[in-house]
């Protein structure tokens, strides 16, 4: 299906043009999400897209699936409820770096710990864009923000390592430059039974790029091209070569752990069967 037909099929085209700033990567990531859903030939009614609050979380309003635009940081608890109510649904969570790792940081680690079957697409633009460029837990150390005019002194989370440590069973990363890889990773995340997190590195030319003199939207995309390294190449690099760069691809996959709704169904059967 052509991209134009995909937009007409899976978006609410009447809501376009979207609210995102010129050159914002969020549109590319949202496009990758629908391409992944189309690739897997999922029925629209069998997909639920839950988002929190922030630039990224506006995506649920443009998509024509079962959608909830929930409260700040609370996309994962809402998604957990949706998944437990109907485990047959394919649940996607659309969230941003601030939404998922600061306000909703606790929900993120516990959803990962439970290994509940859902796919989190984390739009990482390194900043709180909507509120005017405050630094988030994923803002790289040494970057400027409106709340860090002399540059932030805090080290950033590596969210893929955090998710892995918390128990996520599928962890991947790509960028808006690597849009085809991102589509494949989202599709793999949806197919994976368990908690999947895909970090989508996105450019925010207005609130992050401008303060950090990164150039225009195309320059930020070229930065992603030059700093994102495929995992196979990354593994052969020396620590010196790795400095300032990041790996992309499937970073962690574990199919040995039980999925939460499955364990919950077993609990129900055990409780109703009367055997202790």
């Amino acid at each position: 299906m052509s991209m134009e037909n995909l937009i007409n099929k899976y978006f609410r085209p009447g809501r376009l043009p979207h609210i995102w700033c010129p050159g914002c990567g969020n549109g590319v990531i949202t496009g990758c999400i629908v391409k992944a859903i189309d690739k897997l030939a999922l029925e629209k009614d069998n997909v639920a897209v839950i988002s929190g609050i922030g630039c990224s979380s506006r995506a649920s309003g443009y998509l024509d699936f079962n959608t909830v635009h929930s409260a700040h940081g609370r996309a994962l608890p809402v998604a957990t409820g949706v998944k437990l109510a109907d485990p047959s649904l394919k649940v996607l969570v659309v969230t941003g770096d601030g939404d998922a790792t600061a306000i909703g940081g606790n929900h993120l680690i516990h959803a990962a710990r439970r290994n509940i079957d859902m796919t989190v697409v984390l739009f990482n633009n390194s900043i709180y864009g909507m509120t005017g460029g405050q630094y988030s837990p994923l803002t790289p150390q040494g970057s400027k923000a409106t709340t860090a005019p002399y540059a932030t002194i805090e080290p950033a989370f590596d969210i893929t390592e955090l998710a892995k440590a918390a128990g996520a069973t599928f962890v991947a990363r790509a960028t808006t430059f690597h849009a085809q890889i991102l589509t494949d990773l989202i599709a793999k995340g949806i197919q994976h039974k368990g908690f999947s997190l895909i970090e989508a590195v996105s450019g925010c030319p207005i609130s992050f790029g401008r303060q950090n003199k990164m150039g225009g939207p195309a320059d930020m995309m070229k930065w992603q091209r030059d700093h994102g390294v495929m995992l196979a190449a990354w593994n052969k690099m020396t620590d010196e070569q790795k400095a300032g760069k990041f790996p992309i691809g499937v970073l962690h996959e574990d199919n040995s752990r039980k999925e939460y709704t499955e364990a919950y169904d077993e609990l129900i059967a055990r409780a109703q069967g009367g055997n202790k």
């Binding site: 937009i7 995102w20 914002c24 969020n26 808006t176 849009a179």
Partner: peptide, 14 residues
């Protein structure tokens, strides 16, 4: 262009 456009504003008709 189609792959990278964040605004779904350009399509290549093949």
């Amino acid at each position: 262009c189609e792959l990278r456009c964040p605004d779904y504003a350009i399509f290549v008709e093949k």
